[in-house]
């Protein structure tokens, strides 16, 4: 019934699917994962042209959340779908443990000396800082002072919660736990306290939905990073950032080379250009609002700190301790919060 000819015709039809136009003749190419949304926009409009201009390398960007990058790299073991990762500290440790990175040689970066100490290690280079704190709607509620306020009125009934699936959610819940006697490895007090006020909480949501929930007035207080606040504010959303009285949380986003990459040299050039002054400075400006890590770049004035050094006083967490506990925290969060 199905002759070889029909099958061949079918196969040709599949093979004939037109692929995208051939890449213009660049010296090299590098495929980098990047976070969807602001990150991708910024990297596409700033990093890609800079890399093309300086090194004649074409930058292909693949928008993937940190967790999707890890899942994809793990599933495609040995044949990485991209040459460079961009990750928050938690997924970074997962990837190191999973053997998903090539070793990183900091000496290959010409900009290495421009970065504060400790920004480059054997696995990768920091290219962006994130500061997490509390965001609120100044037209609806007074400014909360700290994490404890989130669980009391008037804020609690306007609070939008998220769980342990994101970096900012995890560190915020740890900070809430600390206020009530918990620690980096003990988040139970946060869940106990949250459970007491759970019926009042305005929303317990999927992180991706929080900006819409906030904008439409479903919740007026949430925890998030300065970049999200600056971006939403520039879009006309009524939102302000508060540095909690116990300190804002800081962490770094890092670039890494994927294990088995065939474009290591180009990937180093990509990391180098991202860490350079020009790109860092451009990323700091609206509409992107990144926090720079290059010492030569002045900090924008909406940030709660005046210099990068001041950030060393911010709360930091040890993700090597947090990661092994995360699965059980997620389970606990499910069970405690479930209706």
């Amino acid at each position: 019934m199905f002759s070889r000819r029909t099958l061949l015709a079918g196969a040709t039809a599949i093979g004939g699917v037109s692929l995208l136009p051939a890449i213009a003749h660049a010296k090299g190419i590098v495929t980098a994962a990047t976070y969807p949304g602001v990150w991708e926009d910024a990297y596409r409009s700033i990093v890609a042209p800079a890399l093309k201009k300086k090194d004649d390398i074409e930058l292909e960007l693949q928008p993937l959340f940190a967790v999707d990058q890890i899942a994809k790299a793990k599933a495609a073991r040995g044949a990485p779908p991209f040459d460079a990762f961009v990750l928050d500290p938690g997924p970074r440790i997962t990837a190191i443990e999973g053997g998903l990175f090539e070793k990183f040689d900091g000496k290959k970066l010409t900009n290495a000396s421009k970065l504060p100490a400790g920004m480059i290690d054997e696995w990768g280079v920091c290219v962006n800082a994130q500061v997490v704190g509390i965001a609120y709607n100044p037209k609806k509620v007074p400014a909360p002072k700290g994490w404890k306020d989130l669980l009391t009125d008037p804020w609690v009934s306007r609070l939008g919660l998220t769980g342990f699936q994101t970096t900012f959610g995890t560190v915020s819940l740890i900070e809430i736990a600390k206020v009530f006697g918990g620690s980096e490895t003990n988040i139970d007090p946060a869940l106990v306290e949250l459970k007491k006020v759970l019926s009042k909480v305005a929303a317990v949501g999927q992180p991706a939905a929080m900006p819409s929930l906030f904008q439409q007035g479903q919740c007026d207080v949430m925890y998030t990073n300065t970049q999200t606040v600056a971006t939403l504010k520039s879009k006309g959303v009524d939102i302000d950032f508060v540095k909690p009285e116990t300190g804002a949380v800081a962490f770094f986003t890092t670039l890494h080379l994927a294990k088995g990459t065939t474009e290591a040299e180009n990937a180093y050039k990509y990391c180098d250009i991202v860490a350079g002054k020009e790109v860092q400075e451009a990323l700091t400006k609206p509409p992107f609002n990144f926090i720079p890590i290059n010492k030569d770049v002045p900090l924008p004035d909406y940030l709660p700190m005046k210099s990068l050094d001041e950030m060393s006083s911010y709360v930091r967490h040890d993700w090597a301790k947090i990661n092994p506990l995360r699965a059980s925290w997620i389970e606990k969060f499910n069970k405690e919060m479930a209706k």
């Binding site: 926009d41 928008p63 991706a208 879009k235």
Partner: peptide, 20 residues
């Protein structure tokens, strides 16, 4: 998908989440 086969709903999801 790969870096060259960006798909519409994934792109829209990114636009929704970070910049509304």
């Amino acid at each position: 998908s790969t870096a060259r086969t960006d798909m519409l709903p994934i792109r829209m999801w990114g636009m929704m989440e970070s910049t509304l």
